[in-house]
């Protein structure tokens, strides 16, 4: 059985003291423990920002790529080696802004990847500008007279696009978060897990503010019911649902799961056969 210590590494974190990212890191490790995943089976691909530093703080294979580009790298890795457990970890700016087009098409492509988005509604690493999920009217140093663009609703977008697994977690409810992440990893298909991640340095709302607004989706919510899921995702008002909103089992990419990393070289017979068509 895997233990949480198996994922411990001794890197020194660059996160602010008290940041909710630490909790998410623990929930990720706990999800691996739940699934009994060995570090070498896991690859975490991350973008650039504060959140994407996460894979440096645990034990697993890591590809810390570019801002916005985690998904295509993850897609390439999983496509050629389906035996790996592949996750992406990014911030909301990275995933919904810079990488937005990849997200749209990953919904369609449906690789068996789990994407964790630390949604702190701010560009933290670049010191507090508005992100695609910042609420209307929020003032930042750059948006000094308030954000004028409507925030993106990632869950509703995902459900509309028939994303295979759609969930929201909260960095202040870590047991539930670990459960959600484990379910997302176990799910065959693309799993989007948006996590409400209060930022102690630049955030508008802190964890206590969320506490009485957040609730776990009722046991009677059926993740197979797309309309109900969409209604929950689009809901406005005081209450914020967390949990698995939507599950849609559908064919994954690539169709055939073959570990291509195992065969090296050229099959000369195949080449000779192809050659024939040119004479």
């Amino acid at each position: 059985m895997a233990k949480i210590e198996d994922y411990k590494n001794n890197s020194i974190s660059a996160w602010c003291p008290g940041c909710s990212n630490f909790g998410i890191l623990n929930a990720v490790k706990n999800a691996f423990v739940k699934l009994d995943n060995q570090p070498q089976e896991i690859v975490i691909i991350s973008g650039i920002g504060q959140a994407p530093k996460l894979p440096h703080y645990l034990k697993c294979n890591v590809f810390n790529g570019l801002h916005g580009r985690a998904l295509p790298v993850a897609t390439g890795i999983k496509a050629v080696n389906p035996e790996l457990t592949v996750l992406t970890v990014c911030g909301d700016g990275d995933f919904y802004g810079e990488g937005g087009n990849h997200l749209l098409h990953t919904f369609r492509r449906n690789p068996d990847i789990t994407s964790i988005v630390h949604n702190n509604q701010v560009y933290a690493l670049t010191k507090g500008q508005a992100s695609p999920t910042t609420e209307l009217g929020v003032k930042t140093k750059l948006q000094f007279d308030g954000v004028k663009e409507e925030p993106l609703n990632p869950l509703a977008l995902a459900i509309i696009m028939n994303c295979s697994f759609v969930a929201r977690g909260f960095a202040g409810d870590l047991d539930f978060l670990a459960e959600i992440i484990a379910a997302g990893i176990k799910h065959r298909g693309f799993a989007l897990i948006d996590i409400i991640q209060p930022c102690v340095t630049f955030g508008v709302h802190q964890t206590p503010w969320y506490k009485d607004k957040i609730y776990r989706l009722e046991n009677d919510h059926n993740p197979g019911d797309r309309d109900a899921a969409l209604k929950k995702a689009a809901a406005t008002g005081d209450k914020i649902a967390t949990g698995i909103f939507y599950i849609n089992n559908k064919p994954i990419f690539p169709e055939k799961e073959i570990n291509l990393t195992e065969n090296f070289g050229t099959d000369k017979k195949v080449l000779t056969e192809l050659e024939k068509s040119f004479s």
Partner: peptide, 19 residues
């Protein structure tokens, strides 16, 4: 791929994985 950004990043992912 959905665009050339994705195209090269997918290729890099596959290469990192070992092909």
């Amino acid at each position: 791929a959905e665009d050339e950004l994705a195209a090269i990043n997918m290729a890099l992912g596959a290469s990192f994985a070992g092909v």
